[in-house]
Every structure is written in structure tokens, then in C-alpha cells.
Amino acid sequence: MSHAPAGSAAHEPSEEDQATPVRAATAVTFERAATRLGGRTIWRDVSFSVARGEFVAVLGPNGAGKSTLIKAVLGLLPVAPGSALVLGEPPGAANARIGYLPQRRNFDAGTRIRGIDLVRLGLDGMRWGIPLPGLPRRRREAKQVAEVLELVGAAAYARQPIGELSGGEQQRLLIAQALVRRPELLLLDEPLDSLDLPNQASIASLVRRICQQEQVAVLLVAHDINPILSYLDRVIYLAGGNAIEGRPHEVISSETLSRLYGAPIEVLHASDGRLVVVGQPEAPFVHGDRHGPA
């Protein structure tokens, strides 16, 4: 119904992008897309696009359908009506080129598997057959795992059982797992959830760095925009079954959010640069306000 496609026109393929035809210029394109779950339409008329090397946040209150959106990008849920294109193919067809970190995944102390093995599974966990040690390919893959652990700064504790690590350490390993196949698109569902503030900041800057260095498109679901605000290119805000896409300060404004919710919403600018959204049924932007699993 009411969506403002601000910014989507700004990402037409440039000549530079066309020089490498293997990689699609836009990583994700949704056009007037809708998804139904259990007979209920979760959102409809959702249009947005994410370009290579772009860092886009998916925001919205609990139950707005953020995780549903990520699953639709992965092709785990159908998009109908409307159209969706992911890395130049229908959703689900290009999942080998996508790194995925699902929501709220932590491993309890009884999980007796090492972080490095979990990262390795991101690389070869879908391969059948007996893994024979000593083959050149195995050595190459071991090197790839070592590199990605270095990249996310998890090398020091990667050989410990993952269940014995802290939430922030687990999250770094899971990001390494999502990155290990050098994906073109990274889907992170609430990776900052259950982390303390310093860890939120360092994971956010890590994602920004990966996004720029590797030219990966990132779609990151967040409950709280403030830890990632300074790193973001654009946001997609889901609420009331609709979505608005645009630059962070355009979308997170009293006017735009009031239009999206169809109710008066006020966005306050704190003196430290933080945004605080007031007046919605839930207040997902306020620090310390945590909700149960969606």
C-alpha cells in the first residue's frame, strides 16, 4: 500500500559492475512481494533492492515479519504474489552463494563440537562421501577456514567446544561459518541480539569491514538500530504488513514511521546521536528493551 522506494533507483548497475558479469549487480530485488504463513499474510507490497557491497538493515517490531523476509530471500518460504530475484536467480536457487546466520542460535554447554568444526561445516557440510584427510582440496579448505577465523578474530578460541564460549565468541564463529564460502550475500538475523554493547559495536564494525573488503551485500536484521546506525547504507522498515525502504534518517523519522504505522509516532534524536522511537505498540529502538524469541 504505502511504501516509499527511496534509494532503489540509485542502485542501477554501473559500468564497473557489468565488467564482472558472473556476479549480479543487485544481490536482492523484491517487487511488490507478499508472503503468507499459516493462512495469514505477513507482509505484502514489499519492494526493495540490495546492491553488492551494500549494508542494509531490516528493522521493525517483533512479529513484523523480519525473519520471514530473510527466509523468503533464502527460498525457504514462497513469495506470492509479487516477484523476487536473489543473485540473479529465483529464491533458493543460489543459496550456495549465500551466507546465513539464523536468529537466536546459541549452543549450550552440552554441545560438544569445536567452533572450528562448525565453521568447516559451513564449507563442506553439504558434501556427501567420506572426507579423506591429506587431499590437496582438504588442505586448501583448512587454509580457507583459518583465514576466515583470522578475519573475524576468532582464531584464539576456535578449537574449544562452542558450548563453552561466550555469546559474543559464539556469534563471531557463526559469522565466520556464514562467511567461509565467500558468499556474495550475507543474511544475518539479529546477530547482535544477546550481546553486550561493546560486542554489538565490534560485530557491527566487523560486518561493515567485510561488506567493504569483500564487496558482500549484507542484509542484517536488528532490533535496535543504534549500534549499527553509523555503518548502514540503507534500512528496510517492516511494520503493519508493509515496508518502507530508504536511507536511515529518511525512514526513521516521525513523518515516515507515522505513515507506515498509520498512527502518530515520534522519533527523538538523543544528544549522543541515538534515535529513540516513541509511540509504537512496542519500542524496539530503546536500549535494554529486549523481547522474547519471535
Binding site: 533464502l74 543459496n95 549452543f107 563440537i113 561445516l121 559451513g122 563442506d124 557440510g125 556427501w128 556464514a178
Partner: peptide, 16 residues
């Protein structure tokens, strides 16, 4: 490997 993946990390394994 797929069984190990599915056993410790089913969501990601399914997506992969």
C-alpha cells in the same frame, strides 16, 4: 558431514 551439519546446526544446514 551432512548428518553432522544437520545434527548440530539444522537451520543453516537446511538453507545450505
Amino acid at each position: 558431514r551432512p548428518l553432522l551439519f544437520a545434527s548440530v546446526d539444522a537451520d543453516v544446514a537446511r538453507a545450505a
